[in-house]
Design a protein around this nucleic acid. Structure first.
Lengths: 204, 204
DNA sequence: CAGCCAATGTTAATCCTGTTAACATTGCGC
DNA sequence: GCGCAATGTTAACAGGATTAACATTGGCTG
């Protein structure tokens, strides 16, 4: 039978629920969807989700994984698109990709950094998530190789760059940068921060 | 009668509820407190809060204001403590204050940046909040005055520094910096970021 | 191929919360 | 001292998460 036919068993309810939740989150622009709605959206009863997810947070975690994968995919795409660029340009492009994702997939971006109190488990499963971070590290390693008069560690610089992008992205999401030009403000701020940071480490 | 006696009228329920909510949030380490609990905590019925707050979000907003004020107060204290320091040191100290607040008052810090979908109103009332930002701007203005060969705007540099601190603070809160030394990792990262940023803008 | 089981759905509670309507108290201004 | 507006209370309703008890069925086993 076709994937979503109306037999008693759904066929692939787990994925359907993840997509449903993701769709609801994006549509409503809020992380407060109800499991009942997600179930209805997938065409099953409100108790069905509990065959696949321990509780709501468990479902949320799956959607969060999806969000991380989306950002990672974009980072890889950017890396590829700029594979022949100067390493500085590539680093900047990656920063812009981060900003763009935060804007375009605002709800997903929020979900990724939502504080649910139980940050402990995050340590394990999310620690791997930023494979997008590896992309940044690669670009940074190349940059550092090209400028040998620094003793900066790759991880350190990559993390600083990440924090810079992340900070600007989250402040913008919280409307704290409204006094800048809405269109290019954050982007220019990031560009100039990255340039300054890269310049600055050579004088350390 | 004394402020919290047991007459029919509470006396200052509004503030009591704000404090109750703040206490619950801090105790549980989570933003998911119930209005019922806050009311019980303040010794009133679960419907009483609605005489003072339109809805739960309205109460949350009040607690958020409190959180912002707390951070602002700390920033002012730091400014004062470092009033005779070098402007660079003062800027760094302000960054550390930001990091410390995020760590010590983790739940409050989360609350400040929690995404509730309705970020629109945030634009108005929170735009004023970071009077702590003014403190940073002052320090930055002084720094720039001492190094006249730059054309950098005060707001721009202050925002970049804010974003740097904010990025590191939020990444740390999300356990994304666990591969660094838990105690000093984030702090050192921030210190070196700030130094690099301040150095870097002179070569722009 | 028949039968049985584990996986996966469904229905019908239960418990909690947010929110409101209807009613009770009481501090204060006239 | 009276009466109103502010501030509490109780009772009820409408979700929503979660679970227990029951229903279906795809597939593996003999």
């Amino acid at each position: 039978m076709t994937a979503a036919a109306k037999s008693y068993h759904h066929g692939n309810l787990r994925d359907a629920l993840i997509l449903a939740a993701a769709a609801l989150i994006e549509q409503q622009g809020s992380l407060e969807f109800s499991i009942t709605d997600a179930a209805r959206y997938a065409g099953v009863s409100s108790a069905a989700p509990y065959r696949h997810f321990k509780d709501k947070e468990d479902l949320l975690r799956a959607v969060r994984d999806l969000a991380f994968m989306g950002l990672n995919a974009r980072s890889l795409a950017t890396q590829h698109a700029h594979r022949h660029s100067d390493s500085i340009d590539r680093i900047i492009a990656l920063g812009h990709t981060y900003l763009d994702y935060a804007r375009e997939k605002h709800s997903f971006f929020s979900l990724m950094w939502e504080d649910r109190g139980d940050m402990a488990e995050r340590k394990q499963n999310v620690a791997l998530k930023p494979s997008g971070f590896a992309v940044l590290e690669t670009a940074v390693a190349q940059y550092l190789a090209e400028c040998p008069h620094t003793s900066m560690e790759v991880v350190d610089l990559a993390t600083q760059l990440w924090a810079t992008s992340h900070g600007i992205a989250t402040l913008e999401a919280n409307r704290m940068l409204d006094h800048f030009d809405p269109a290019a403000g954050a982007r220019q701020l990031l560009t100039s921060s990255i340039r300054a940071l890269l310049n600055g480490i050579r004088l350390g």
